[in-house]
Design a protein around this nucleic acid. Structure first.
Lengths: 137, 137
DNA sequence: GCTTGATCTGGAGCATGCTCCAGGTGTGAC
DNA sequence: GTCACACCTGGAGCATGCTCCAGATCAAGC
Protein backbone atom coordinates (compact mmCIF):
# COMPACT_ATOMS: atom_id res chain seq x y z
CA UNK A 1 0.00 0.00 0.00
CA UNK A 2 1.43 3.31 -1.09
CA UNK A 3 1.54 6.00 1.58
CA UNK A 4 -0.98 8.62 0.52
CA UNK A 5 0.42 12.06 -0.20
CA UNK A 6 -0.93 14.34 2.49
CA UNK A 7 -1.54 18.04 2.43
CA UNK A 8 -3.81 20.66 1.00
CA UNK A 9 -4.46 21.16 -2.68
CA UNK A 10 -3.32 24.47 -4.06
CA UNK A 11 -6.89 25.75 -4.02
CA UNK A 12 -7.33 24.85 -0.37
CA UNK A 13 -3.97 26.30 0.55
CA UNK A 14 -4.82 29.49 -1.30
CA UNK A 15 -8.13 29.96 0.45
CA UNK A 16 -6.59 29.09 3.81
CA UNK A 17 -3.84 31.64 3.33
CA UNK A 18 -5.93 34.29 1.64
CA UNK A 19 -3.86 34.20 -1.53
CA UNK A 20 -4.64 33.26 -5.10
CA UNK A 21 -3.46 29.99 -6.58
CA UNK A 22 -1.51 32.01 -9.12
CA UNK A 23 0.27 33.83 -6.34
CA UNK A 24 1.21 30.57 -4.65
CA UNK A 25 2.66 29.19 -7.86
CA UNK A 26 4.43 32.49 -8.44
CA UNK A 27 5.97 32.41 -4.96
CA UNK A 28 7.27 28.92 -5.53
CA UNK A 29 8.69 29.77 -8.95
CA UNK A 30 10.29 32.91 -7.59
CA UNK A 31 12.13 31.17 -4.79
CA UNK A 32 10.15 32.53 -1.87
CA UNK A 33 9.42 29.11 -0.45
CA UNK A 34 11.76 26.93 1.55
CA UNK A 35 11.46 23.96 -0.73
CA UNK A 36 9.70 22.76 -3.85
CA UNK A 37 6.17 22.07 -2.70
CA UNK A 38 5.64 18.30 -2.51
CA UNK A 39 3.57 16.75 -5.27
CA UNK A 40 1.04 13.99 -5.50
CA UNK A 41 1.81 11.05 -7.78
CA UNK A 42 0.16 12.92 -10.61
CA UNK A 43 2.18 16.06 -10.06
CA UNK A 44 -0.36 18.17 -8.17
CA UNK A 45 0.97 20.25 -5.31
CA UNK A 46 0.21 19.19 -1.76
CA UNK A 47 0.89 21.88 0.81
CA UNK A 48 1.89 20.52 4.21
CA UNK A 49 1.65 22.31 7.57
CA UNK A 50 5.25 23.50 7.34
CA UNK A 51 4.63 24.96 3.91
CA UNK A 52 1.55 26.75 5.20
CA UNK A 53 3.36 28.12 8.24
CA UNK A 54 6.19 29.44 6.12
CA UNK A 55 3.91 31.00 3.54
CA UNK A 56 1.95 32.60 6.35
CA UNK A 57 5.15 34.26 7.52
CA UNK A 58 5.86 35.30 3.95
CA UNK A 59 2.47 37.00 3.75
CA UNK A 60 3.20 38.84 6.99
CA UNK A 61 6.49 40.05 5.60
CA UNK A 62 4.88 41.00 2.31
CA UNK A 63 1.94 42.75 3.89
CA UNK A 64 4.28 44.84 6.00
CA UNK A 65 5.92 45.92 2.78
CA UNK A 66 8.96 43.70 2.46
CA UNK A 67 9.89 43.42 -1.24
CA UNK A 68 9.80 40.03 -2.91
CA UNK A 69 13.54 40.18 -3.35
CA UNK A 70 14.14 40.47 0.39
CA UNK A 71 11.72 37.69 1.19
CA UNK A 72 13.64 35.54 -1.26
CA UNK A 73 16.91 36.49 0.39
CA UNK A 74 15.47 35.53 3.76
CA UNK A 75 14.22 32.23 2.39
CA UNK A 76 17.68 31.55 0.99
CA UNK A 77 19.22 32.09 4.39
CA UNK A 78 16.77 29.76 6.06
CA UNK A 79 17.33 27.19 3.34
CA UNK A 80 21.08 27.46 3.86
CA UNK A 81 20.55 26.07 7.35
CA UNK A 82 22.18 26.89 10.65
CA UNK A 83 24.98 29.36 10.95
CA UNK A 84 23.52 32.48 9.44
CA UNK A 85 21.07 33.36 12.19
CA UNK A 86 22.63 36.74 12.78
CA UNK A 87 22.22 37.59 9.11
CA UNK A 88 18.57 36.60 9.25
CA UNK A 89 18.19 38.67 12.37
CA UNK A 90 19.80 41.64 10.66
CA UNK A 91 17.40 41.35 7.78
CA UNK A 92 14.40 41.21 10.09
CA UNK A 93 15.68 44.07 12.20
CA UNK A 94 16.22 46.26 9.16
CA UNK A 95 12.72 45.47 8.00
CA UNK A 96 11.31 46.23 11.42
CA UNK A 97 12.99 49.64 11.43
CA UNK A 98 11.56 50.43 8.00
CA UNK A 99 8.09 49.39 9.03
CA UNK A 100 8.22 51.46 12.21
CA UNK A 101 9.40 54.49 10.24
CA UNK A 102 6.64 54.02 7.71
CA UNK A 103 4.04 53.59 10.42
CA UNK A 104 5.16 56.83 12.01
CA UNK A 105 5.08 58.66 8.68
CA UNK A 106 1.63 57.36 7.82
CA UNK A 107 0.31 58.32 11.23
CA UNK A 108 1.70 61.81 10.85
CA UNK A 109 0.21 62.25 7.40
CA UNK A 110 -3.07 60.82 8.55
CA UNK A 111 -3.19 63.43 11.28
CA UNK A 112 -2.96 66.14 8.64
CA UNK A 113 -5.74 64.47 6.68
CA UNK A 114 -7.85 64.24 9.82
CA UNK A 115 -7.42 67.95 10.28
CA UNK A 116 -8.73 68.48 6.76
CA UNK A 117 -11.69 66.25 7.55
CA UNK A 118 -12.37 68.35 10.62
CA UNK A 119 -12.41 71.47 8.50
CA UNK A 120 -14.98 70.01 6.12
CA UNK A 121 -17.13 68.80 8.98
CA UNK A 122 -17.14 72.22 10.58
CA UNK A 123 -17.99 73.81 7.28
CA UNK A 124 -20.87 71.43 6.64
CA UNK A 125 -22.24 71.86 10.16
CA UNK A 126 -22.10 75.64 10.01
CA UNK A 127 -21.99 76.73 6.38
CA UNK A 128 -22.59 80.40 7.23
CA UNK A 129 -19.69 81.10 9.50
CA UNK A 130 -17.05 79.97 7.02
CA UNK A 131 -13.71 81.40 8.07
CA UNK A 132 -11.03 82.41 5.62
CA UNK A 133 -10.61 79.16 3.86
CA UNK A 134 -7.49 78.37 1.97
CA UNK A 135 -7.69 78.44 -1.76
CA UNK A 136 -6.72 74.81 -2.13
CA UNK A 137 -9.18 73.38 0.31
CA UNK B 1 7.03 97.42 -16.50
CA UNK B 2 5.85 93.86 -16.71
CA UNK B 3 4.92 92.22 -13.41
CA UNK B 4 7.50 89.51 -12.80
CA UNK B 5 6.17 85.99 -12.65
CA UNK B 6 6.67 84.79 -9.09
CA UNK B 7 7.06 81.32 -7.71
CA UNK B 8 9.49 78.46 -7.48
CA UNK B 9 11.06 76.77 -10.46
CA UNK B 10 10.17 73.13 -10.88
CA UNK B 11 13.54 72.09 -9.46
CA UNK B 12 13.03 74.20 -6.34
CA UNK B 13 9.47 73.01 -5.93
CA UNK B 14 10.63 69.43 -6.29
CA UNK B 15 13.31 69.72 -3.65
CA UNK B 16 10.97 71.62 -1.33
CA UNK B 17 8.33 68.94 -1.66
CA UNK B 18 10.64 65.97 -1.71
CA UNK B 19 9.51 64.88 -5.15
CA UNK B 20 11.26 64.58 -8.49
CA UNK B 21 10.68 67.09 -11.26
CA UNK B 22 9.36 64.25 -13.38
CA UNK B 23 6.82 63.42 -10.73
CA UNK B 24 5.65 67.02 -10.56
CA UNK B 25 5.16 67.15 -14.32
CA UNK B 26 3.44 63.77 -14.18
CA UNK B 27 1.04 64.97 -11.49
CA UNK B 28 0.12 67.99 -13.54
CA UNK B 29 -0.39 65.97 -16.71
CA UNK B 30 -2.44 63.43 -14.84
CA UNK B 31 -4.88 65.93 -13.41
CA UNK B 32 -3.80 65.74 -9.78
CA UNK B 33 -3.30 69.46 -9.47
CA UNK B 34 -5.98 72.08 -9.05
CA UNK B 35 -4.92 74.10 -12.03
CA UNK B 36 -2.35 74.25 -14.76
CA UNK B 37 0.79 75.45 -13.02
CA UNK B 38 1.46 79.09 -13.98
CA UNK B 39 4.26 79.69 -16.43
CA UNK B 40 6.91 82.31 -16.93
CA UNK B 41 6.91 84.25 -20.19
CA UNK B 42 9.13 81.61 -21.69
CA UNK B 43 6.92 78.73 -20.62
CA UNK B 44 8.75 77.52 -17.54
CA UNK B 45 6.59 76.49 -14.59
CA UNK B 46 6.43 78.73 -11.56
CA UNK B 47 4.95 77.06 -8.50
CA UNK B 48 3.15 79.45 -6.17
CA UNK B 49 2.40 78.91 -2.47
CA UNK B 50 -1.07 77.57 -3.25
CA UNK B 51 0.36 75.04 -5.68
CA UNK B 52 2.89 73.95 -3.08
CA UNK B 53 0.28 73.61 -0.36
CA UNK B 54 -1.96 71.54 -2.57
CA UNK B 55 0.84 69.29 -3.76
CA UNK B 56 1.89 68.83 -0.15
CA UNK B 57 -1.59 67.53 0.61
CA UNK B 58 -1.37 65.30 -2.45
CA UNK B 59 1.86 63.80 -1.14
CA UNK B 60 0.20 63.14 2.22
CA UNK B 61 -2.65 61.38 0.50
CA UNK B 62 -0.28 59.43 -1.71
CA UNK B 63 2.04 58.46 1.10
CA UNK B 64 -0.87 57.12 3.08
CA UNK B 65 -1.66 54.94 0.10
CA UNK B 66 -4.39 56.77 -1.75
CA UNK B 67 -4.27 55.73 -5.42
CA UNK B 68 -3.58 58.35 -8.07
CA UNK B 69 -7.08 57.90 -9.40
CA UNK B 70 -8.66 58.86 -6.10
CA UNK B 71 -6.41 61.85 -5.68
CA UNK B 72 -7.48 62.95 -9.14
CA UNK B 73 -11.11 62.49 -8.20
CA UNK B 74 -10.59 64.59 -5.10
CA UNK B 75 -8.86 67.28 -7.12
CA UNK B 76 -11.77 67.29 -9.55
CA UNK B 77 -14.19 67.87 -6.70
CA UNK B 78 -12.15 70.74 -5.34
CA UNK B 79 -11.83 72.19 -8.83
CA UNK B 80 -15.60 71.95 -9.25
CA UNK B 81 -15.94 74.45 -6.44
CA UNK B 82 -18.44 74.77 -3.63
CA UNK B 83 -21.34 72.41 -3.27
CA UNK B 84 -19.69 69.03 -3.16
CA UNK B 85 -18.11 69.26 0.27
CA UNK B 86 -19.94 66.19 1.52
CA UNK B 87 -18.62 64.18 -1.38
CA UNK B 88 -15.09 65.33 -0.61
CA UNK B 89 -15.66 64.45 2.99
CA UNK B 90 -16.90 61.01 2.05
CA UNK B 91 -13.80 60.41 -0.01
CA UNK B 92 -11.52 61.45 2.82
CA UNK B 93 -13.47 59.43 5.36
CA UNK B 94 -13.30 56.32 3.22
CA UNK B 95 -9.58 56.83 2.84
CA UNK B 96 -9.17 57.34 6.57
CA UNK B 97 -10.94 54.07 7.28
CA UNK B 98 -8.71 52.21 4.85
CA UNK B 99 -5.58 53.71 6.35
CA UNK B 100 -6.65 52.83 9.88
CA UNK B 101 -7.41 49.27 8.83
CA UNK B 102 -4.06 48.97 7.12
CA UNK B 103 -2.25 50.42 10.11
CA UNK B 104 -3.90 47.87 12.35
CA UNK B 105 -3.03 45.02 10.00
CA UNK B 106 0.58 46.11 9.70
CA UNK B 107 0.90 46.44 13.44
CA UNK B 108 -0.49 42.97 13.92
CA UNK B 109 1.83 41.45 11.36
CA UNK B 110 4.76 43.35 12.77
CA UNK B 111 4.03 41.83 16.16
CA UNK B 112 4.38 38.37 14.65
CA UNK B 113 7.66 39.40 13.06
CA UNK B 114 8.86 40.81 16.36
CA UNK B 115 8.15 37.46 17.93
CA UNK B 116 10.33 35.82 15.31
CA UNK B 117 13.07 38.34 16.04
CA UNK B 118 12.82 37.43 19.69
CA UNK B 119 13.27 33.78 18.87
CA UNK B 120 16.45 34.46 16.90
CA UNK B 121 17.81 36.68 19.63
CA UNK B 122 17.24 34.01 22.25
CA UNK B 123 18.88 31.45 20.07
CA UNK B 124 21.92 33.60 19.45
CA UNK B 125 22.29 34.44 23.12
CA UNK B 126 22.02 30.86 24.25
CA UNK B 127 22.85 28.58 21.32
CA UNK B 128 23.04 25.46 23.50
CA UNK B 129 19.62 25.44 25.02
CA UNK B 130 17.79 25.53 21.68
CA UNK B 131 14.24 24.38 22.23
CA UNK B 132 12.30 22.46 19.63
CA UNK B 133 12.51 24.90 16.82
CA UNK B 134 10.05 24.82 14.01
CA UNK B 135 11.20 23.50 10.72
CA UNK B 136 10.43 26.72 8.90
CA UNK B 137 12.29 29.02 11.26
C1' DG C 1 27.89 85.90 -27.98
C1' DC C 2 28.96 81.47 -25.94
C1' DT C 3 28.59 77.87 -23.03
C1' DT C 4 26.61 75.17 -19.39
C1' DG C 5 22.87 73.67 -17.33
C1' DA C 6 17.70 73.96 -16.51
C1' DT C 7 13.37 73.38 -18.62
C1' DC C 8 10.06 72.11 -22.18
C1' DT C 9 7.01 68.33 -24.73
C1' DG C 10 5.46 63.86 -26.22
C1' DG C 11 6.17 59.50 -25.75
C1' DA C 12 8.66 55.29 -24.53
C1' DG C 13 10.41 52.39 -20.85
C1' DC C 14 10.67 50.26 -16.50
C1' DA C 15 10.22 48.03 -11.69
C1' DT C 16 7.05 45.58 -8.96
C1' DG C 17 3.88 42.09 -8.17
C1' DC C 18 0.97 39.74 -9.55
C1' DT C 19 -2.82 37.78 -13.06
C1' DC C 20 -4.26 35.48 -17.01
C1' DC C 21 -4.03 32.31 -20.98
C1' DA C 22 -3.43 28.22 -23.99
C1' DG C 23 -2.96 23.67 -24.40
C1' DG C 24 -2.76 19.64 -21.98
C1' DT C 25 -3.42 16.16 -18.03
C1' DG C 26 -5.64 14.55 -13.65
C1' DT C 27 -9.84 13.68 -10.57
C1' DG C 28 -14.18 12.48 -8.90
C1' DA C 29 -19.15 11.94 -9.23
C1' DC C 30 -22.38 9.36 -11.72
C1' DG D 1 -16.71 5.80 -19.71
C1' DT D 2 -18.08 10.61 -19.55
C1' DC D 3 -18.51 15.10 -17.94
C1' DA D 4 -17.17 19.02 -15.35
C1' DC D 5 -13.81 20.91 -13.14
C1' DA D 6 -9.08 21.32 -10.83
C1' DC D 7 -4.46 21.39 -11.80
C1' DC D 8 -0.13 21.58 -14.61
C1' DT D 9 3.61 24.50 -17.33
C1' DG D 10 5.67 28.25 -19.79
C1' DG D 11 5.03 32.46 -21.04
C1' DA D 12 2.50 36.68 -22.04
C1' DG D 13 -0.03 40.54 -20.17
C1' DC D 14 -1.33 44.03 -17.04
C1' DA D 15 -2.07 47.79 -13.36
C1' DT D 16 0.39 51.19 -10.90
C1' DG D 17 3.40 54.87 -10.54
C1' DC D 18 6.70 56.73 -11.82
C1' DT D 19 11.36 57.54 -14.65
C1' DC D 20 13.90 58.40 -18.60
C1' DC D 21 14.87 60.04 -23.34
C1' DA D 22 15.30 62.88 -27.59
C1' DG D 23 15.28 67.02 -29.54
C1' DA D 24 14.45 71.72 -28.85
C1' DT D 25 14.31 76.10 -26.19
C1' DC D 26 15.64 79.13 -22.28
C1' DA D 27 18.68 81.27 -18.60
C1' DA D 28 22.71 83.07 -16.68
C1' DG D 29 27.64 83.64 -15.84
C1' DC D 30 31.74 85.07 -18.27
Amino acid sequence: MVPPVRGLTIADAASTLGLSVDTLRYYERDGLLLRAVPRSASGHRRFGPDDLRWIDLVTKLRSTGMPIRDVRRYAELVRAGDGNESERLGLLHAHRRLVLDQLAAVQENLAAIDKKIGIYEDRLLDPERTPGRSVEA
